[in-house]
Amino acid sequence: MTKYIIRRLLGIIPTLLVIITISFFIVRVAPGGPFDGERALPEVVKRNIEAKYHMNDPLIVQYGRYMFDVLRGDLGPSYRYKDHDVNFYIFQSLPNSMILGVIAISISILFGITSGMLAAVRQNTWVDYLSMALAVIGISVPLFVIGPVLQYIFAMKLQWLPTSGWFTAGGGIKTIILPALTLAFADFATIARLTRSSMLETLRSDYIRTAKAKGMKSSAIIFKHSMKGAMLPIVSYLGPAFAGIITGSVVVEQVFRIPGLGKFFVQSSFNRDYTLIVGVVIVYSVILVIMNFIVDIVYSLLDPRITYK
C-alpha cells in the first residue's frame, strides 16, 4: 500500500507536466492575444510590451522559460493586471473559494446522502417523491436563479442574513451561509440521485437477499450490509466534484460578491491572459489529480476486492 501511494504520487508529476504543456500551447494557438484590445495599440507601445514579456522569442524558448519558472513555483506575471503577479491573485482568492467550497460540499454530502438513502428505503412513498422533487430542482434550476431566490427570501424578506459580502471583507461569518447553500444545491441534487439509484441497486443484490434470508432486521441490512457498496459511486463522483467546487464558481461569486478564484477562470480567458489562464488550470489540475488519488485510496478502503500493490 505504501509503495502504491508513493508510486501514485510520483505519477502525478508527469501528468501535471503534460497538462501544463498542453495548456501553454493551446492558449497561444487560440486567436487574439493579451494586448489586442478594442482599440489597436500604437505599434511602438505594442512592440515594447511584447519585448517586456519576451513574446518575440521563439515559442519553444518561451515555453522553456515558463516551465523553469513554474517548477520553482512561480506562475509568472499577469499579462493584464499590472500590480501583482499570477501567484498573488491565485493565492489570495483560492482560500476563499476553498472555505466556501468545503462548507458547500459538506452540506451537499450530508443532505444528499441522507435524502437519497431515505428515498431508496422508502421507495415510491412521499419521502421518495419529495427528495427526488428537490433533486430535480437542484439539477435543473441554475445557480443564478437559486442564488437570487435565496437572497430574496432570507436576506430581503426575512432579513436573517446579509445579501452579499464576504467575511474577510468585514461582512461577518453569516455571509458564508447563503452562497454555501446555493453552491451546495447542485451537488446535493446529484448526490441524492446517485445515492438513491445506487442504494436501490444494492438492495436488489443477491447478498442483501442472503442477509434477509438470515433473518436480519432491515436497519442492520441497510447500515451494515448495504452502505459500503452503495457509497462507491458517490465516492467516485465526489473526487471531481470536490475539485470543481473548491476552485470556485463564477456565478456564486458574482451573485454574492465573493473574492474567489472562480472569476479568474472566465476573466483570464476573455483577456487572453496567458499566464493567468495556465495558472488557474495548474491549480485546478493539481487539486483534481490529488482528489482522484484520494478517491482511489478511499475506494480501496471500502472495497476489499481492490488491493493496490
Binding site: 443484490s205 443477491d206 447478498y207 437477499r209 442472503t210 442477509a211 459500503k228 457498496g229 472495497d303 476489499p304
Partner: peptide, 8 residues
C-alpha cells in the same frame, strides 16, 4: 454474489 463482498 450471495455473500456480501464487503464483509469478512
Amino acid at each position: 454474489t450471495s455473500l456480501n463482498p464487503f464483509l469478512r
